[in-house]
Structures are given as structure tokens and as C-alpha cells.
Amino acid sequence: MLGQDEALAAIVTRPVMEAHAPAIIILNTGVAHRVGHHRKFVTLSRRLARAGHTVVRFDFPGLGDSPAMTTDASLLEGNLFAIREVANWIEQAFSIDRIIMLGLCSGADQSVIYAGRDTRVKGAILLDPSIPRTRRYHINDFSRRIRSRALWTNFLSGKGRIWDYTRSLFRKDGAVSVSSRQFSRPNLEHPEAISFLEGVYQGAIDNGVNLLGIFTAGQEYQHNYRTQIVDALPKVHFADRVSLHFLRDCDHTFIRESYRNYMYSLVADWLLSEFPDDRSPNHGVASGDDIESMEF
């Protein structure tokens, strides 16, 4: 267990031979524990360790194997504090003072927020971070829907949102029925949300952080093209600090092995291009004897 209260459950995977490549901290996705859906963060950690990186996967307080903490801080501030404790521990234990953050969904959002607050962070790998929808998003979405067989099937059979809305106009109370599949999410298109996100991303860039953004089709209700983040946050000077990918045939959790392997290769290639002088002599070796895992 890491942290000043030894309350953060963590697994460290690292090369057996001494390595000086930036350490990588992987954050929880939602409430899933540090292993990640389909065990992808375990596999990714082992691959990155073979490439010379020390990788720490840990559970935020109250998730996975980390007990909840009693604190007055907000959930976000508590989690950012936990990340700082892990970064401090990495620096003390391994003398590595360069950090790369990695996370999916909420983990991506917290990664980029933290990236602007710690000068040790040199990179952030963001898988499906939350970004506002744009005019081009809506055009793409409309175009996709109009070509969808399901839309026309529903329309002709009297099902779907269009008919729900139409029926509500003739109902006495005017209430629109809510599908059980709908769920609440923050309104990222609100000017305050956009301003907040612009501050977060500009803060990371100003801190010298390079960004890898990988977006999947699994979040089609939020993003649907590669450069959406640039259009959505116009005040951020991304310049050449961001590398973007949109995976059209991939879901949000990378359920298929081929999707995961492609994501792993994008991450590895980006690390190689951004940190070319930090390769381990073991880079590319696929046996299990060149890395070790330790629990904390």
C-alpha cells in the first residue's frame, strides 16, 4: 500500500534491469479496479515495462483494493492528491522524476487535469477523454443517423425518439417519456464547461506536457471525428503538442483483442517518438523474465 497513510493499493511493473525512461501512472476507469476491463491495463503495463518503463497501476481511495478515506476534499481533489502521492513515491523509490499519465474516460480526464499541476508530468495518454460536441460533430451524427437502417425501421414502425416526442405533444401533461437507456452526463457544451476544459488542456500544454489522444467510436454520443478536441476547445494552443487518433471500429472499453493490440501499438509508437533516448536494452523482448511485478 502506498501513500502517507498506506491506503493506496498499487501494482508496480518494471524492467528488472535499471531503466530511466519516464514512469507511467495508470488511473482507474470509472469504478473498475486497476486491472481494467478485459485485463488491458495488466497487459499494457507488462508491454511498457519490457520497453523500459516503470508502470504503476493503483486504485483511487474507495475503489478496488484501496479503502475509502475520510476527507473534506472533493472527490476530484482527493484523487489528484492520491496521484501526487504515487508520483512522489515513484521519485523516492526509483529516482524517476518524469511521469506520463494514462487513463480511459474519467481516468483520461483526471490525467490531463493532473498534468497541468505537476511539473514532473511530461506526457498524458488520453483514451476517450470527455470533450464537448461541435457543429461538425452534429453534422456527422445527423449524417450517420440518416443513413442508419434502424432509424428508418423505427420510423416506419412507430418506435424511437421521434415518435416518443410526437406522442408527447398530444399528451395532456406534455411529458416526454425517458428511455431506460438514457443516462445523465455533464453538459460539456456549456460555456463554463468549455472554459474549464480549455484551462485544463492549456495548463497541461503550458506545463510542457505532450498529449496522445485516442478516441473510439464507442463514445459516439460525445465525439465522432479525430480532430474534434481541437475544434471543441478553440482557445487552446495545441500546436504540435498533441497527437490524435480516431478508431472508427473500436468500442469504449476495447473489448476485442485486435482493438487492444492496436491501442497498445499506438501508445508504444508515441512513447518511442516522444521519448526516443530512453529505450531499455530489453525493448522488444517478449519473455516474462525481464520484468517484475510488485504489490504495494
Binding site: 476491463h37 478485459h38 485485463r39 473510439t216 467510436a217 464507442g218 459516439e220 478508431l247 472508427r248 471500429d249 473500436c250 468500442d251 469504449h252 472499453t253 476495447f254 473489448i255 476485442r256 483483442e257 485486435s258 482493438y259
Partner: peptide
Amino acid sequence: IPGVGPASYFSEELGGGREVMGL
């Protein structure tokens, strides 16, 4: 789920069988 194609089937060298729910 948007983006999810059919499960892959694996060669005998990889143990054979197919993907099921991500594994």
C-alpha cells in the same frame, strides 16, 4: 455496442477457440 465487430476466432497456435466478452 457502437464500434464492436464480431468475435475473432483464434488459430491453434494461440490455443484455438474465440473471444468471449473481451477475453
